[in-house]
Design a protein around this nucleic acid. Structure first.
Length: 1119
RNA sequence: AGUCUCGUAGCUCAGCUGGUUAGAGCACUACACUGAUAAUGUAGGGGUCGGCGGUUCAAGUCCGCCCGAGACUACCA
């Protein structure tokens, strides 16, 4: 006969992991779980590609547990869930690690190392830790197809990306423009925000700052500023070298500004200046003092130590809009619309934290500046001039030098740091400009200022914000479509979609696609030198045709490169319609586009597998998941590309999980040494405990404070309990040879408690199913845990233990086995998505012995379906009563020092409602045996000796009484017995408060009985229990009999007798023993499998304590 | 700086549309139970629900401001 596996004497999750992993691999369970399901009933899942050039961390286990569990759940719900793996292979981190490893820089590529070698090295590095990733994938039990993954550097993948870009190009959503970006002149390259955020990049530096006086044009001043003489606007800058490029001044529309009369501290000329009122004290600190009148002001002399100032009037920023001013440093004029430059505009980003509340605006060197200048009406032109080739360029070139034709500053570097060692002039341009402004009465104040400024991580020199050419996707044009589509996506949690993602879409900017890098997907756009003609290539075939055409027209001998990465692709020359040569735009595309293209590119769409997308076989996804930090990353790129190219969503359901922090809530980092090694964790605690802990401890979208002790708790509390329950079952089922071969006993023929746990189990199935399908795994796991711990183990098994080991293999025993078996088998299925290994071990142990299920693994089984007819809410309620009543009685026993082995006569229960008596009667025997009491009686309001108490029902009463609630509550609490019985009899009671009358019904008042004179009472919410604690001789004798049983059992156990051994018993004679043996001898014998009990000589027996004061010898012998 | 999330017992978390004395598990202490025993039960201590103000008869729950933690975006004259 098949046996239930009892190899494990105690829970060993890593061992179970090993067994199950081996089983899965040998039997190809993953593939079966996919292939057994019909393609017509798919659940589409997208794997967000990890990058294998970093080691997997514990947070990856978290993210993948979330992905895995929903895929497993849907599989069990009958869906076919293909899980194509993928690798993200492009991007800066890979270039950096290659360069670091080889000890080279970008400049060495092509000289110290060939492009081939570099390219090969990148490919290799990308997969550096692939083995570790594969390993963690297996160990954590994450099912994903790693045999046929998509890889973003493959030509097929790139070709699909080109096609997508081509679609955008055809829709006129791709264009070239410029933005202000961080740029390192010394390195000659733009910097990503990622590079700027490297540690040590932001540094405190001391710069020369200037508060400049911009002289307004009289005729442009509003009326309230007329007739006051020359008026200057003050604006502060920490980068005086940008002042020649100033084309506007920005004020905050709602900020209050003031006109102040004073004297210039360098020229001592009288001046009228405008600045934010809130900053007057700051700007006029030290050298200045406030005066109240023109006279005081006029009395100033240049030799005075302190300079007076007078606040004349104030006004808000919007009043200043449109004022024009003289260009501060007229080295050059904007080549476009110079008439729109040099005026006051408004911007909401202006603050009064420091400076003057007026922002010097140079659109060529500041991102905010460029934005606000563009938004102004008419647009403020940036200070761009035309170079010798007629191209518009800023006043500073790419090396960080002023253009040569700019008088005395021409040809100088804007920062002294950019000069080679020893070549920097004594005075930096900043200082030179400051001096010039002082001399010309254009500087209000010049001082040194310490501030935080980014530096290039490679050259250590300050970064310049500089306008750089870039290719953009005109995502703003599709903004409304994206917003509309987003509303159809089910976000978990909802606020990530509505708020975070929604806001991001509302404030969408065009997508800057360009990266001046090396290892990535090349932009497939070719242009003529004069940029008048261009072509966008959309496939390799297309490229081949164009190459052939170019070969023909230009007399070249080119072919399609084997690898379409840089630099091979850069060598390809195409021909324009007018016959000119075209070169590729050198940019690579943002790697985020790679990942957003995966729904299509993973299948090499549209060159292959057209139906997958066009017929919706694998598009859109039913479900994706990734970290919340991907909101603007993967979640956005998927959404943007699907919206813009296909006009559809890319995913219907999305779970964004939070971060994994250390147990103190601090982000894990190598530097802090608080990183948790996923391999070690899984090796010690097992994959299931780790996964279960992560899912059950906090909602996936909340940050998880990862604590190994928490995993241990889950192991003990949940897996330990479940394991014990199974072991218990297996022990006796093996003894009795239960293999579920008997016919299933109808529920109606089983005991109340069996029907109860089955009812609860079916309720659980319903709830857990709903939670999983609603992407609420935490609730699902918590419900399963409560069931296993509180109901199955601590109530059902505890109360039913006797049924398993006592007596013959009866119908009742079989019913108990069937019931427990069903619970364990169903729990295995319910928990399988989150704890895939233990659940399969449990499932197989059960099924291997019974062959009840046709499938070999729990992951090939169907998710349980609740049997509605088995759910009996009344039964669940009365068992809840039983549990609570028992608990109350036990607590009274505890208080009174009455051990449970001492029988008592009676408990009294307060009757709650009409069904209460019949409900409790049905579980009466359970309660009585659990608490060792002989009988139950019910208290109804006919008894006269109970004190009833009235309490307000706040919920109903609040609506009736309103503001009289407090008074009403007090009055109700004071109700006497008469008032209560009047209310109960007539169902009406009139309450009078401050002259107002209110008619109350029994619904508004709760009556309780928490005092019964002479009884011990305990209360739990609505249930009140009273216990009769008086003892009789008979009760005492019975109590002693039970004590004896207990002692004899202990002796059997310590003597290592078999559970089935029969014994003879001899007990030392004593007064307290005699009545017990006389009255309960048969009972004792039956309990301990004794064939005789002798009183008297027990020499050689064990001395044991019977009561606190009596110890006697007991001798037990095997027959 | 902006947007979003979070802040409840020593720790991890519940607390539905506002309603009576704010709950559970872990940990701690005491006791009990014992044919699940490296398990189990009962009881106990422990809380200004981050702070302040408001709405309301009634606020952990709704609103405003502030503080703290985190994420993302932006980078500032």
């Amino acid at each position: 006969m098949a046996k239930y596996n009892d190899d494990l004497k105690q829970l060993n999750l890593p061992e179970i992991d090993r067994i199950i992993r081996q089983f899965w691999e040998e039997n190809d369970i993953f593939n079966k779980s996919v292939n057994q399901k019909s393609i017509d009933n798919s659940f589409v899942f997208y794997e967000g590609p990890p990058s294998a050039n970093g080691k997997p961390g514990i947070h990856h286990v978290m993210g993948r547990a979330v992905k895995d569990l929903f895929c497993r759940y849907q599989t069990m719900k009958g869906k076919r869930v293909e899980r194509k793996g993928g690798w993200d292979t492009h991007g800066l981190p890979i270039e950096l690690s290659v360069e670091k490893e080889l000890g080279i820089t970008k400049e060495d590529i092509g000289t110290k190392i060939s492009v081939d070698e570099y390219n090969a090295k990148c490919r290799e590095t990308v997969m550096q830790y692939k083995d570790q990733w594969d390993d963690i994938t297996r160990r954590m039990g994450y099912w994903v197809d790693l045999d046929n993954p998509y890889i973003t550097f493959n030509n097929e993948y790139i070709e699909s990306v080109w096609w997508l870009l081509g679609q955008l190009y055809q829709k006129n959503l791709l264009y070239k423009g410029y933005t202000i970006q961080p740029y390192s002149p010394a390195a000659g390259t733009g910097l990503s925000s990622h590079e700027l955020n490297q540690p040590g990049c932001y540094r405190d530096v001391t710069d020369t700052t200037v508060v400049a006086q911009f002289k307004t044009l009289q005729e442009s001043l509003p009326a309230f500023l007329q007739g006051l003489g020359d008026i200057h606007i003050l604006a502060w800058t920490t980068t005086p070298w940008t002042l020649p490029s100033n084309t506007a001044l920005t004020v905050g529309p709602k900020i209050t500004y003031a006109l102040v009369k004073t004297y210039n501290q360098y020229t001592f000329e009288p001046v009228n200046v405008i600045l934010a009122k809130a900053l007057i004290e700051k700007q006029f600190a030290g050298k200045f003092f406030a005066v109240e009148s023109e006279e005081q002001l006029a009395s100033f002399q240049a030799s005075d130590k302190k300079i007076p100032y007078l606040i004349v009037k104030d006004f808000v920023g919007s009043d200043l809009e449109g004022i024009r001013y003289e260009q501060l440093l007229p080295y050059a004029l904007p080549y476009q619309n110079p008439e729109n430059a040099f005026r006051v505009i408004t911007g909401n980003f202006v603050t009064t934290e420091d400076g003057t509340g007026v922002v010097h605006t140079a659109p060529t060197f500041g991102a905010d500046d460029a934005k606000v200048a563009k938004e102004a009406n008419p647009e403020v032109p940036p200070l761009l001039v035309l170079d010798e080739n007629g191209n518009a360029v800023p006043l500073v070139d790419l090396r960080g030098k002023f253009r040569a034709d700019l008088a005395e500053i021409g040809g100088k570097y804007v920062k002294n740091e950019y000069y080679a060692d020893g070549e920097a002039p004594e005075r930096s341009v900043d200082v030179e400009i400051a001096i010039k402004l002082k001399e010309e009465n254009k500087a209000f104040k010049v001082e040194k200022y310490v501030h935080n400024y980014p530096h290039c991580w490679r050259t250590d020199k300050p970064v310049l914000y500089y306008p750089l050419d870039s290719w953009f996707i005109r995502s703003t044009a599709m903004k409304d479509k994206m917003i509309e589509l987003n509303k159809t996506i089910n976000w978990k949690p909802a606020h990530t979609g509505e708020k975070r993602f929604g806001n991001w879409l509302e404030n969408l900017n065009d997508w800057n696609l360009s990266r001046s890098r090396y290892w990535g997907i090349p932009l497939p756009i070719w242009r003529t030198d004069d940029a008048t003609e261009e072509k966008c290539i959309t496939s390799i075939e297309d490229l081949g045709k164009e190459i052939a055409l170019a070969n023909e027209k230009l007399g070249l001998n080119q072919s399609v490169p084997k690898d379409i990465h840089r630099p091979y692709i850069d060598e390809v020359i195409l021909v324009s319609p007018s016959g000119k040569a075209m070169k590729r735009e050198l940019d690579l595309i943002d790697v985020w586009f790679d990942s957003g293209a995966m729904p299509y590119a993973q299948w090499h769409y549209p060159m292959q597998n057209r139906d997958f997308i066009d017929k919706g076989v694998t598009f859109p996804a039913d479900f994706i998941a990734a970290g919340v930090d991907q909101t603007r990353g993967w979640f956005f790129t998927l959404h943007a590309i699907a919206s813009m190219v296909f006009g559809k969503v890319a995913y219907k359901n999305v779970v964004s999980n939070g971060l994994v922090l250390d147990k103190n809530g601090v982000k894990m980092s190598k530097r802090l040494g608080n990183v948790i090694d996923p391999f070690e964790t899984i090796a010690e605690y097992g994959a299931d405990a780790t996964r279960w802990y992560m899912i059950s401890n906090a909602q996936p979208w909340d940050n998880l404070k990862f604590d190994l002790e928490g995993i241990d708790e889950v192991r003990r509390k949940f897996f330990g309990t479940l394991f014990n329950t199974y072991s218990f079952f297996a022990l006796y089922a093996n003894i009795d040879g239960f293999s579920y071969s008997e016919k299933k006993i109808p529920l109606a023929e089983r005991q109340e408690i069996d029907r109860w746990i089955i009812s609860l189990l079916n309720s659980l199935v319903q709830e857990v199913d709903a939670e999983y399908s609603d992407y609420e795994p935490t609730n699902a796991t918590r419900k399963i845990m409560t069931f296993v711990d509180e109901h199955l183990s601590n109530w059902y098994v505890r109360l039913c233990r006797r049924r398993f080991w006592k007596g013959d293999y009866s119908q009742d025993k079989i019913a108990a086995y069937q019931t427990l078996y069903e619970c364990l088998n169903t729990i295995a299925k319910l928990m399988a998505p989150v704890g895939p290994m233990f659940s399969d071990w449990l499932f197989k142990n059960l099924n291997d012995a019974t062959s009840l299920e046709a499938c070999e693994s729990v992951h090939l089984a169907d998710f349980p379906q609740a049997d509605i007819s088995a759910i009996d809410k009344a039964l669940e309620q009365r068992m809840d009563y039983a549990q609570r009543i028992s608990s109350l009685v036990l607590s009274i026993r505890k208080k009174e020092g009455l051990r449970v082995r001492q029988p008592l006569t009676k408990i009294w229960l307060q009757v709650l409602d009409s069904s209460f008596i019949s409900q409790v009667d049905a579980v009466k025997e359970l309660i009585l045996s659990e608490v060792n009491v002989k009988d139950v009686e019910y208290i109804t309001d006919t008894e006269g000796f109970i004190n009833k108490k009235a309490k307000a029902n706040f919920k109903t009463l609040g609506k009736i009484l309103g503001k009289h609630m407090k008074a009403g509550q007090a009055m109700i609490a004071e109700f006497d017995q008469k008032a209560i019985s009047q209310l109960e009899k007539t169902n009406a009671y009139t309450l009078e408060i401050e002259g107002e009358k209110f008619v109350l019904t029994t619904e508004d008042i709760e009556v309780s009985f928490d005092e019964i004179p002479g009884w011990q009472v305990a209360v739990d919410k609505d249930i009140t229990v009273a216990l009769d604690i008086s003892l009789t001789d008979d009760l005492i004798a019975e109590g002693i009999a039970r004590e004896l049983v207990n002692r004899i059992q202990n002796i059997r156990k310590t003597s290592d007798f078999n559970v089935t051994d029969k014994i003879t018993i001899a007990i030392e004679d004593h007064d307290i023993i005699r009545p017990a043996v006389a009255q309960f001898g048969e009972y004792i014998k039956a309990e301990v499998l004794g064939i005789s009990i002798a009183l008297g000589n027990a020499d050689g027996g064990e001395l044991v304590e019977i009561t606190d004061d009596v110890s006697l010898k007991i001798k037990v012998a095997k027959v």
